[in-house]
Design a protein around this nucleic acid. Structure first.
Length: 595
RNA sequence: GGUCCAUUGGUCUAGUUGGUUUAGGACGCAUCCCUGUCACGGAUGAGAUCACGCGUUCGAGUCGCGUAUGGACCGCCA
């Protein structure tokens, strides 16, 4: 029997026609001599009817099948007497004349429906069952559609899709590398790429001019709800393009994506926000601009205050007293709620959280008396009115930003300030070139070491100057408070690249060992160029309104890096280890219990 | 590396302050009845050494400690 159409695409147009369908038994309802089966495939569900009197052979098959058995049926589409409005194909059914069982199934560990009660551990272990759920199938289709749009867009704009190697060389900085031992060279290792960064730059040196790739990237760091050890980037690079041209190209892709996926016309160009402003007003380098509730600085008001807690902070270098005003938050938030928030922000090393509620006769709350002198000015700066809640945090720049940034986002959620169908894309620009890493005790590249700084900031690389003041020609693309991509104009002058390596503390030898091939590329002529990489999984996650990146990755790792279905990583034979010249210290660490 | 939370039939869970609980329910499963259901319905039934170990106690699913697993977060993720 040859299938005539997908189960889920059976339609009223086929009424009276014969169809052959193949799919999974989603549910079975027996009435003695009459059996209904909901048949499911990736496109949807249709109701089958088996009548013992009319087609006894087919009925016998229906009587024996159970949930998740796979069957093929031949029958006639007909209009239903009683319509089921909850079902997409609820106006029709198929009266089955012939049926065959193609596969049996053990009782599934959880039922295949969207509101499944199974927890994620179960779903990942039996992913092939989990993916049968319509919601998961929808995610797979969305991802496929988005991939195809990416290819179409870049192909239409003269970009070449070029593959770069997965077995490459370990580079310092950035994330920990996944290593692959070399069989032929004992003690040598390939590394899986954290991104195709250096290759795409060398493709520019090669004259490819416009490159893109759906590239798999690998980073051996701890996982999060929006982070997997292997993930997909939409990677692109353009020669002879300014930051604006690269951004324009990116906006074009986003515009096309939003039109085709969501049917929405997104306005371009996107707003640009400077890094410093984002940190000051939103407390983060990925602001959610769907709601206001901005952070305001009050440091100057407390320099001479008798309120020691604030005064002490206000008089320290690069320490601040800042606040947000929660409109009509006074009733919504109890002392207990705020204590919980205070507890939370201690993980950002905040010493505490202070708050007042704005009443008809001034402030009430923990520090109301201590700050009554400044009340008028505070209200003015924050635009506070009766019924509002003001939350203060004092401390170092990092602590104040992290704490108030988190509180702003958290309260935004709790008070339903963001609309999930609003899509605020924006560029975050004017990044600092370097950050001081307390752990390493040295300067590191904020973006990556091949980022071009603003030409007028070049002198900060000289000895005795403050690299912290240098700004980079890099840009992040932000969507609703999530970073979904980032890029930069690259260094194409070997002399400048050398200076940057030096500022980062690399000796010439070290730089040559690690990045020699890039330096060579520069020496043989690199065009001015730049590019951008999108976190594709995260973008899919957001457009899908999914809860976790694990929902839009077909076979994801759990939070401990284990893939529960295959139980990777696993052990290998002694023979394999010998070939790779590897001795394993068996007394160290844990064993994958699923292996 | 660190902090916090969770773990009870196949699945999801209830189980107060330790004591009538033979560990309750829902879904699923099995057998039977049923020709218009669509989360079908009805009847009957099977299925759990309460993650593991040690301890406290007259008595532990319940309290403590440890281990394991899962999840969230900090660090980390150029």
């Amino acid at each position: 029997m040859k299938r005539t159409n997908y189960v889920g695409r059976t339609s009223e147009k086929q009424i009276g026609q014969e169809v052959v369908l193949k799919g999974w038994v989603a549910s079975r309802r027996s009435f003695g001599g009459l059996i209904f089966i909901d048949l499911r495939d990736r496109e949807g569900i249709v109701q089958l009817v088996f009548d013992e009197k009319k087609y006894p052979e087919a009925f016998k098959v229906a009587n024996e099948v159970r949930n998740e058995y796979i069957i093929e049926v031949r029958g006639v589409v007909r209009k239903r007497a009683e319509v089921n409005p909850d079902m997409e194909t609820g106006t029709i059914e198929v009266e089955v004349e012939e049926a065959n069982q193609l596969a049996t199934s053990m009782t599934p560990p959880f039922s295949v429906k969207d509101d499944t009660e199974a927890n994620e551990e179960m779903r990942l272990k039996y992913r092939f069952i989990d993916l049968r759920r319509p919601k998961m199938m929808k995610y797979l289709k969305l991802r496929s559609k988005m991939t195809s749009i990416v290819h179409r867009y870049f192909d239409n704009h003269d970009f070449l899709d070029v593959e770069t190697p997965d077995l490459t060389r370990s580079t310092p900085e950035g994330a920990r590398d996944f290593l692959v031992p070399s069989r032929t060279y004992p003690g040598h290792f390939y590394a899986l790429p954290q991104s195709p960064q250096l290759f795409k730059q060398l493709l520019m040196a090669a004259g490819v001019d416009r490159y893109y790739q759906m590239a798999r990237c690998f980073r051996d760091e701890d996982l999060r709800g929006d982070r997997q050890p292997e993930f997909t980037q939409i990677d692109m690079e353009m020669s002879f393009a300014s930051a604006e041209e690269i951004q324009e190209t990116t906006e074009g892709l986003i515009k096309m994506m939003m039109k085709e996926i969501k049917g929405i016309d997104i306005k371009t160009p996107f707003p640009r926000m400077k890094w410093q402003y984002a940190m000051d007003k939103y407390g983060t380098d990925k602001p959610d601009t769907r709601f206001e509730m901005l952070i305001e600085d009050l440091t100057d008001l407390f320099k001479n205050s008798s309120f020691k807690l604030f005064a002490n902070e206000a008089n320290q270098e690069r320490h601040f007293v800042r606040a947000i005003c929660v409109p009509q938050g006074a009733e919504k938030y109890s002392r207990k709620d705020l204590e919980e928030k205070e507890e939370y922000i201690k993980r950002y090393h905040a010493k505490g959280l202070a708050w007042v509620k704005v009443g008809a006769n001034g402030y009430t709350g923990t520090i109301a008396d201590q700050i009554s002198d400044q009340a008028e000015e505070i209200n003015k700066r924050l635009g506070a009115h009766e019924g509002d809640l003001i939350i203060f945090v004092a401390g170092s720049f990092q602590v104040v930003c992290d704490s108030l940034g988190w509180i702003r986002r958290k309260i935004g959620h709790e008070m339903h300030m963001m609309n999930k169908d609003q899509w605020n894309y924006m560029w975050l620009v004017d990044w600092p070139m370097f950050e001081y890493d307390e752990g390493w005790g040295r300067w590191i590249a904020a973006h990556h070491p091949f980022t071009m700084l603003n030409p007028e900031d070049l002198h900060y690389l000289n000895d005795g100057e403050d690299p912290h003041k240098a700004h980079a020609q890099s840009y992040d693309i932000i969507l609703n408070g999530q970073e979904i991509g980032g890029g930069s104009i690259r260094v194409h002058d070997p002399k400048i690249q050398e200076k940057i390596f030096k500022a980062l503390g690399y000796s010439k030898e070290e730089a040559n060992t690690r990045f020699g091939f890039l330096i060579k590329g520069l020496e043989y002529g690199m065009p001015p160029e730049g590019g951008l990489a999108f976190g594709f999984d995260r973008w899919v996650l957001m457009l899908a309104h999914a809860n976790s990146i694990r929902d839009v990755v077909p076979f994801p790792k759990n939070s401990k890096g284990i893939e529960p279905m295959t139980a990777a990583p696993g052990t290998v034979s002694q023979g394999q280890l010998d070939e790779l010249h590897i001795a394993v210290n068996k007394n160290t660490g844990h064993v994958n219990p699923k292996d």
